[in-house]
Amino acid sequence: MTTITPQSLEVPARRRGTGTRATRIIGLATIVMIGWLAVFGLLISPADRDQGDSVRIMYVHVPSVWLAYLAFIVTAICSAIHLFGRRHSLGVDRVAGASAEVGVVFMAVTLVTGMLWGRITWGVYWQWDARLTTTALLFISYIGYLAVRGLEGTRQQRARRSAVIGLLVVLEIPLVHWSVRLWRSLHQEATVLGTDLDVSLDGLMLFSLFSGVVAFTLLFIWLVLHRSRMLTMIDLAGERALDEALASRISEGGEKRA
């Protein structure tokens, strides 16, 4: 009797982990840029004339909201590529999932920093402003998207389902935004201070903000690369466990027959 050992069961010993030379360089650059941002945001850039030191929250808040939207755009594009592409690639699906996860984290950072800023500037944590409300609903919707990714089923099923949901959320965004804007424009009386940050930015402030965007973009790329590789490994581990279970059943059957 021969024992069945499929090639896929051999554990590749040469690499463990999700790092490569490229991600290590990006990781280092991220750390440097975040240090740079901390120095410029906290020490070098001036306090705002009206908002005082609370303006420094902006150096984290604004880059994180931009990156959250970028992450959701990446998810939508990857969803469309998965669904309409001829190969229905699972790799693209994993990038969509990784990007949505990172986007949700950035969105949470946006909401928390925004609320802190609001408490200092407006005196309240929350205002039922169109942009805030849309952002909050979008955050919940992507938590739903991640929940769909966690549903049982084959990887192809998961990929197709989440791609469809990823595109439906895109359909939802303009409708939510439109309805909330219409709602607020009819019902909101006086706003203490417009939510638009229409302060004229000092050159140094603008530079700090720019540093924030660069730092967070690098962080985003680094996180998505690692996370999508991690998702690949999780899938491979699941596959290997299945192969092993199958192989042991087959060899059991063989022994019985022998």
Binding site: L137, S141, G144, A147, I165, V176, L182
Partner: peptide, 23 residues
């Protein structure tokens, strides 16, 4: 046909349906 649907459905439907609630 997916387990856990009872708890997932409101999380998916309610944010999408919020424009209808407002309108």
């Amino acid at each position: 046909g997916v387990s856990g649907r009872e708890t997932l459905l409101p999380l998916l439907v309610l944010p999408v349906a919020s424009p209808v609630l407002i309108g």
